[in-house]
Amino acid sequence: MNTIVQVNELRKTYGETVAIDEVSFEVREGEIFGMLGPNGAGKTTTIECLEGLRKPDRGTLRVLGVDPQRESHILRERTGIQLQQSNLPDRMKVWEALDLYASFYPKTTDWEELLVQLGLEEKRNTPFAKLSGGQKQRLFIALALLPDPQLVFLDELTTGLDPQARHAIWDLVRDVRARGKTVFLTTHFMEEAERLCDRVAILDHGRIVALDTPTALIHGLDAEERVIFNVDGPLPASFAKALPDAVRLEVEATRVIIHGKNDREIPLVSEVVNLLTGQGVAFHDLRTEQPTLEDVFLSLTGHQIRE
């Protein structure tokens, strides 16, 4: 698989502050690559160095095979960029923005089609200032897709959006990947990284502390999963005895929580349900809790992502 972005020992400081240090990674063609970390971890610095908007102090960068600083003109035509903070003039209408930006590139996709695909057709005559947060983000995605880029940069795409708008944006990003484009995104939402990204680099204090698929990161954690249910009467003693040794049982009145490692051969939940039905114990409201990237982050950095 082709490498689209290659970063070797990237370092960038602002005065005394080291924003990123010894950051190395690769992004492969056709994947959604996420950079996850709390605010100030160095995500935006990294993405802006890749976009050619900032000059790194050290390290080698290759984006689509070129140096983002020296050959920025090549990148500008072949990448689509959504910035964390940017705006259009308040009174510029949606269609005017697309029409204007289309004139900047030698070759573009049909922006009328983008309007439809991004659900902005009804808003084509709406001035930028009158758009909702989600609509503005969709317009910025449309502008990023306009040059039909090989690589799309999305910086904190869904920050400030309500959950519904966020889910709609996720679907759009998956569509972008489905069109064969590579996506590089930053986020501080665990759920976003977990559900959207093919691979995630976890960044903390300017360094990558882990890099893998979300599933592998979670499995590598060696964390526990939980099966939780309610029983009508008391839990028979025979049930506790029959549980495997590696499993911990917690009972609070009628509520039962069973903790177990998530690397078992038979899933914990089927073992528990088999036991319950085998012993004729009546139960309801059964659910399971899996470890998440939140747990991965906590165990790697020793702190929560949002402080």
Binding site: I81, L83, N87, L88, P89, F104
Partner: peptide, 16 residues
């Protein structure tokens, strides 16, 4: 205003 609101910055990401 174009500079403060990031309108120029958005333009900077294009070949213009």
């Amino acid at each position: 205003t174009y500079r403060e609101k990031g309108i120029l910055r958005r333009l900077q990401t294009t070949p213009v």
